[in-house]
């Protein structure tokens, strides 16, 4: 294809662009909060949110970085990041199984929390309570958060 753009043409026409964005086509779309919020019809799944908070809290309690947890549980770093922070990311059952082993929790309960199997109403209730009591992104768990974590872990362990 011949494309003879002269400097003169470019300088004249670039003004049309000004300070505007130029992206077109759905593929160019960013996962921006505003854009997604208007499109999303599904509500945030509290159980899955609790799963992310749980893994993050357990990891912090053990003093593990994401990288270290990834190494120990043989899960991709990116997957752990998304498990903790992306409520719509559905981890593979194998990854959930490895997390269950890493934190010594029943696999069945964690599969429910992760959304891989459906959670019983009682589980949903406990998960919701835990999600509501855990902080946004604590560097260190507060006493209340620790307590919430311990209670939830104790409940999970009985499953």
């Amino acid at each position: 294809m011949k494309l003879a753009i002269t400097k003169e043409w470019f300088e004249r026409r670039v003004k049309l662009e000004g300070d505007h964005e130029i992206a077109a086509g759905a593929l160019a779309r960013d996962p921006a909060p505003e854009a997604e919020a208007s499109v999303a019809s599904e509500s945030i799944d509290a159980v899955r949110l609790a799963f992310g908070s749980l893994i993050e809290s357990l990891r912090r309690r053990k003093g593990l970085t994401i990288e270290k947890l990834a190494e120990r549980s043989e899960i991709d770093v990116a997957d752990i990041v998304r498990i903790e922070r992306d409520a719509h990311f559905r981890p593979e059952p194998r990854a959930v199984y490895r997390l269950a082993q890493a934190f010594d929790l029943p696999n069945k309960a964690l599969q429910q929390l992760s959304g891989n199997t459906s959670a019983q109403p009682e589980m949903q209730e406990h998960a919701l309570r835990f999600a509501a009591r855990s902080g946004e992104s604590p560097q260190k768990l507060s006493r209340d958060e620790k307590k919430a974590l311990e209670e939830f872990v104790a409940y999970l362990a009985r499953q």
């Binding site: 996962p31 921006a32 909060p33 719509h88």
Partner: peptide, 25 residues
């Protein structure tokens, strides 16, 4: 860079509950 930009948006005080609902990108 795009991800960083979005993280900054999130860091500007939006609680976790309001994170992009379809953060599957």
């Amino acid at each position: 860079q795009i991800i960083n930009h979005i993280r900054q948006l999130i860091d500007q005080g939006q609680p976790r509950q309001t994170w992009p609902q379809s953060w599957h990108w």
